[in-house]
């Protein structure tokens, strides 16, 4: 401010405002910085993050069978798909809620690897056992609010918004993978 404004006591108001505002701004910044550690302490800790990968041996899984392995405390579904299931997964209807081709979801067509947590509210869908209710699309069925997933783990019907997540994974050998 070029003009000097003085109040009736002869104080310089521009200077006073400046001091108020800078003091206030510093106090707010320090306050926010002091709160941050408390918020951050709720984020996953180093030991939780360290559990990040899991190896799985696929050699014992026969065609048509599924197994569940645990990765970061979550179930991961590994399904050794039949020819029929692969064919079903490759039929790509137009009205998928979360459009993805099967090719984008697998590394090798006979192995489907997905996180076994319904993308609606986190229940574990049924379908790992052959006598489970696998829903209308022969993949998985979530009993909590009725989401149907197909043989590629894609959402087809029900309240879930997304396909079952595909975790990051790699084939170590032809018959073993590392998830995460």
């Amino acid at each position: 401010m070029s003009e000097q404004v003085q109040d009736h006591d002869g104080h310089d108001e521009g200077r006073r405002d400046f001091l108020y505002i800078t003091t206030g701004a510093f106090a707010a910044a320090i306050g926010a910085a002091a709160i941050w550690p408390f918020i951050d302490a709720w984020n996953p800790s180093a030991d939780v993050l360290a559990l990040a990968s899991t190896e799985a041996d696929l050699s014992a899984i026969e065609v048509g069978q599924s197994v569940t392995v645990v990765w970061r405390g979550k179930p991961v579904f590994i399904r050794h798909r039949t020819e029929e299931e692969i064919a079903l997964a490759n039929l790509l209807p137009e009205d998928l809620p979360d459009p993805q081709s099967d090719g984008e979801r697998v590394l090798k067509p006979e192995w489907l690897v997905v996180v076994g947590i319904c993308t609606h509210l986190g229940c574990v869908p049924l379908g790992q056992k052959t006598d489970d209710n696998r829903g209308e699309y022969d993949g998985w069925f979530c009993p909590c609010h009725g989401s149907h997933y197909d043989t590629s783990g894609r959402i087809r019907k029900g309240p879930a918004p997304r396909n079952l997540d595909v975790p990051e994974y790699a084939f170590l050998t032809d018959s073993s993978i590392r998830v995460g």
Partner: peptide, 17 residues
């Protein structure tokens, strides 16, 4: 959600808090 859980699922950190 991850922040609420303190992990990737409801687990021990969640129970503690």
């Amino acid at each position: 959600v991850t922040w609420l859980w303190g992990g990737f699922t409801v687990a021990n950190p969640t129970l503690n808090r």
